[in-house]
């Protein structure tokens, strides 16, 4: 009745209950007529049982404390990505809220959903642009006395000067809603000419920098990309002829909100 040979893949599927009922019955009949194949199939079945018997005792072992602790929350010492939410209410709920907030932001701007949470790529693998932004951030942002060349008091002059040097009109985005005020900016050398750096600061003194270059000679527009260089997180993207990079030592999700705000402001010009 069952003359045609049964492929090995079907024999495995037979053992694992993956075959439709009719085919299962067919294979069973075929195995009755092929005792050596039946032995093989039985040995796989036994192997499966043995593996379960071998490792099932792990299920009954007491759980190590370090793991049960992690079931309820990320320990504070390793809670870096979420540390922006201080311990005002149970940390778990805050984290949940943060997750939802990010999901909402991602949903609201569809292009973000795809690329925002790609795994961080080490900067060395990418263009020099985000790396230079991170370095410029690391060099200038800790400076107490002279973080910028032209301060925000003279924002008009700063914008005129930087626009002229970059050869295209640029402006400093408003980030006050996110708690960041412009301190000022400076001109820096980039690979393809002058680059502008705007520096912002929040009430706690945390600084972030926006690095804007006219670096886009070959590249097309990109969605957000994320990179990190040491303690500095960077979101960057290319839009038209400008390349933008937002750098700060703040957690990725907080930085993502800033990047979103900057992107949207430049979109609505």
């Amino acid at each position: 009745m069952t003359a045609s040979p049964v492929p090995t893949s079907d024999l495995h599927a037979y053992v694992d209950g993956e075959l439709p009922a009719a085919r299962h019955a067919e294979v069973a009949t075929w195995l009755d007529e092929h005792p050596e194949e039946r032995l093989r199939v039985e040995s796989w079945r036994k192997q499966k049982d043995d593996l379960r018997r071998l490792f099932d005792p792990v299920l009954d072992e007491p759980l190590p404390d370090r793991l049960t602790a992690l079931a309820s929350e990320l320990p504070p010492a390793r809670a870096k990505p979420w540390s922006i939410f201080s311990a005002r209410s149970p940390r778990f709920l805050q984290r949940l809220a943060a997750g939802l907030a990010i999901a909402f932001v991602s949903g609201a701007s569809g292009w973000l959903a795809h690329d925002l949470y790609h795994p961080p790529v080490h900067l060395a693998q990418l263009s020099q642009f985000p790396r230079q932004a991170a370095i410029a951030h690391a060099v200038f942002s800790p400076d107490i006395r002279r973080p910028v060349e032209i301060s925000a008091e003279h924002e008009d002059q700063l914008i005129t000067w930087l626009s002229k040097r970059l050869g295209a009109p640029i402006r400093a985005p408003r980030l006050a809603k996110l708690g960041y005020e412009l301190i000022g900016g400076r001109l820096l050398p980039g690979d393809n000419g002058p680059v502008a750096q705007f520096m912002y600061q929040d009430a706690s003194g945390e600084r972030l920098t926006l690095y804007v270059g006219t670096e886009n000679t070959n590249n097309r527009d990109t969605a957000f990309r994320f990179a990190q260089e040491g303690a500095v997180n960077v979101f960057y993207w290319i839009d038209g002829k400008f390349g933008y990079a937002i750098s700060a030592g703040v957690p990725k999700d907080a930085l993502a909100r800033v990047a979103t705000a900057v992107y949207e402001q430049f979109q609505h010009e």
Binding site: V58, L59, D60, E61, L63, L67, T68, A71, E73, F92
Partner: peptide, 20 residues
Amino acid sequence: MDSLAILAVLPRLRRYARAL
């Protein structure tokens, strides 16, 4: 994702990790 759900999966994660 809540703590109880994680605690429930934890033994299985450990079993698989041990085997792997």
